[in-house]
């Protein structure tokens, strides 16, 4: 099959990439653009390790075709820390030891950032339901939920 030319914007930068028609956006990011921070845990939309923002909407990149990125804006884990340092959510994940192996962490951080942009002051239940699409097998979720709560508090009233 002939490859498809895709022009897209990833983490604020315009990018061009050739994709197989059946490549997922996850394949395109990882193999086409070398952005391996986005992880594959299942490729069926069940684990959330491949979470990215597509035109401002949280998606599993394994369920989107690479060709669908044409003209779209994509934000991945590699773009979460701006040039000035870690995002507050990244900092809180570290402080709370909210990761063990770390394979699910990029997806959780992208999803948590999306939550706090939409709902700056979520209660525990809201956090738990928003993150229910992201599987973590190491932490039992306790420290992840606390890290997101703490990040929300700090964003609401910066120290």
């Amino acid at each position: 099959m002939a490859k498809v030319h895709v022009s897209t914007t990833v983490n604020g930068q315009p990018m061009d990439v050739l994709v197989e028609p059946n490549d997922s956006l996850l394949d395109t990011l990882r193999d086409g653009l070398g952005l391996t921070g986005t992880k594959e845990g299942c490729a069926t939309g069940d684990c959330g390790a491949c979470s990215v923002m597509l035109d401002g909407r949280l998606v599993c990149s394994c369920l989107v075709l690479g060709a669908e990125a044409e003209g779209k804006t994509i934000d991945t884990i590699e773009g979460v820390a701006d040039g000035d340092g870690l995002h507050i959510i990244q900092q809180k994940f570290l402080e709370h030891a909210a990761l063990q192996c770390g394979i699910c962490t990029p997806g959780f951080i992208v999803a948590a950032k999306a939550l706090l942009e939409r709902e700056p002051n979520p209660d525990e239940t809201t956090i738990r339901y928003w993150l229910a699409g992201n599987l973590c097998r190491c932490t039992g979720y306790d420290k992840i939920v606390r890290a997101v709560q703490d990040a929300a508090n700090e964003l609401a009233s910066p120290a």
Partner: peptide, 18 residues
Amino acid sequence: VRPDGVEKVTGRANFGAD
């Protein structure tokens, strides 16, 4: 904070398929 932490919250850490 763990020594490998920043690599893991920024997507830099290289796993098996990377």
